[in-house]
Design a binder for these strands. Structure first.
Length: 110
DNA sequence: CTCGTGACTTACG
DNA sequence: ACGTAAGCCACGA
């Protein structure tokens, strides 16, 4: 049973269009707080696996971060494939043209 | 209710 | 660039 906080995070995350990415920080900002880690917790639980594009959530420096609770090569490779499949280029665990594909807070407000 | 933990971030050495 | 520390908030024991 997901909590309200999680539903909020997922609702925001579902607004991110394909081919775009978002950071934990931006998600927290969109929620109106600074629960950066709490956002990560919500992703870790992620009961809406296929409906919530958790692979579009990366760290603020553009790196992939964790995936499936791990930062192993296998897991991050899986995430990289999903992102590239949506048009997001990834280079050595980092997003290429990060400032271009990044979905900002202003985009949510509008 | 209190405490520890974490798919985080920023700042400082 | 890298490690450490502090700050934030939600969750589970």
């Amino acid at each position: 049973m997901p909590t309200e906080f999680q539903d909020k995070v997922y609702e925001i995350l579902k607004k991110v269009p394909k081919g775009r990415v978002v950071t934990y920080k931006i998600l927290a900002e969109a929620l109106g707080c600074k629960a950066y880690q709490a956002v990560g917790t919500a992703m870790r639980i992620n009961p809406y696996a296929p409906f919530v594009p958790c692979h579009r959530v990366v760290k603020s420096d553009g790196s992939i971060g964790y995936f499936k609770g791990k930062n192993t090569y296998a897991a991050m490779n899986e995430k990289r494939i999903m992102l590239e499949n949506e048009g997001v280029k990834v280079r050595e665990n980092k997003i290429v043209d990060f400032d271009v594909v990044l979905y900002r807070v202003e985009n949510f407000k509008k």
